[in-house]
Design a protein around this nucleic acid. Structure first.
Lengths: 222, 222
DNA sequence: ATTACTTTTTAGGCAAGCCTAAATTTATTT
DNA sequence: AAATAAATTTAGGCTTGCCTAAAAAGTAAT
């Protein structure tokens, strides 16, 4: 396998994320939206990735990663999360500042480098957003019991264990409202018409969160 | 000034290095050789860099950096040397293993990142090869008294303070012969016909070094 | 100073990765 | 099931950064 381009690596990573645990087929348009490119550009690249046996792809039918492609995607995610952990734990960046830098660092080509950073950090299991860091073999230990805040029950105390990192605006919003990993959260009321929640963050005032927000927050009962 | 491409940054860096302290004009062919591309490709890029006012360039007359171009080149060199220091001091890479990784890391776009790594390292003045690390303002403190081993005198004790890093083969050669930064070296004899030297490394056996080798080694009288 | 040699530039092409516009396939309505 | 809408692909183009081959400019040697 030749070295992949920065762009090819990015496609694999995003296909992996969109497909999710259920390994759903990934539509051309969903990739286009996520990568902020036109659908025609996606089609071009999908042909190339299929040629290299990194994805399965049939015209008009969407795509999915092959085992090879998935392994590579996971290694890129590993690098991304290790670098984020380094930036936050060692260089004192805030968790909402590191995404763009990690997006660059994840493409540095050196297995030895990432393994040494991993060791330097003491082989962390989770990154600053609460997401699991795949190990060198690509194995991912999912945090148990984690559910989305949007699916959580009323009158139960939860701890926030992850925040989907893809929107900087969201991260800023949470930071402004002093919501972060480890915050204790209690659902006071659920409004069925828009599935928004009135919640109480321990030690702070109550606040209303839209489903757009709650669906990005992972929680665990305490 | 827009963000420069990886390739443009590389050109500036190499022009800076070839020009040297005397700011000599840089010939198209010397860049071609160094970048391992064809002269015609160099010409293409020189036109573009001139257009962006990063270099001065006249057809058939070679090129040189403008103040703007030089500032950028120095910042890339700063990044390269800070990353090399990080890799050696913090991750325990050997000084001859870090060049290729640093070549990638030097293009990461984040002023904040490099400043924090610099602080993390305690604002080092020299990198593992003994070369000075420009500060944030681009100022370079050259090590005083440093000369090339090829120009050193007989019967004087020197300390090795720098090794030109561009040839991996050379670094390997020196490592194999247990020659490194801090080694004490004494010139026993100079052979005028090829300017090679017979030298003694303190605590080790004597060895003959060609001018090709000695011209890459910086020393300081002890 | 004219010839021969070296260096550099021009001209035309190619692959990667993106684009727009138009054609095609699939999905949804009526 | 035909018509419309949405998703996707094709066709053709553009820029970047490289290439080869040929022309032009500069340098050296007779």
């Amino acid at each position: 396998m030749n070295i992949l381009s920065h762009s090819e690596e990015n496609y694999l990573k995003h296909i992996y994320h969109i497909a999710g645990k259920e390994r759903n087929k990934v539509a051309t348009n969903s990739l286009a939206e996520r990568l902020e490119t036109k659908a025609s550009s996606i089609t071009d690249m999908l042909k190339k990735l299929k040629e290299k046996e990194l994805i399965e792809y049939e015209k008009y039918k969407g795509c999915g990663l092959t085992d090879l492609g998935e392994n590579i995607a996971i290694q890129i995610i590993r690098k991304h999360r290790i670098w984020e952990t380094f930036l936050v734990n060692e260089l004192n960046f805030k968790w909402d500042e590191v995404h763009d830098i990690a997006e660059q660092l994840e493409h540095i080509q050196s297995q030895e480098l990432i393994d040494r950073i991993d060791a330097f950090l003491g082989f962390p299991k989770f990154d600053p957003h609460g997401d699991p860091i795949p190990n060198k073999q690509g194995k991912i230990e999912y945090r148990e019991l984690k559910i989305n805040l949007s699916e959580a029950k009323e009158d139960v105390n939860y701890e926030i264990v992850s925040v989907n990192e893809d929107s900087l605006a969201l991260l800023r919003y949470l930071d402004d409202n002093k919501i972060g990993l480890g915050s204790e959260i209690l659902i006071l009321e659920r409004y069925d018409f828009d599935n928004s929640l009135k919640v109480k963050i321990k030690g702070k005032k109550t606040i209303n969160l839209s489903e757009k927000v709650t669906s990005c927050i992972g929680v665990r009962p305490m």
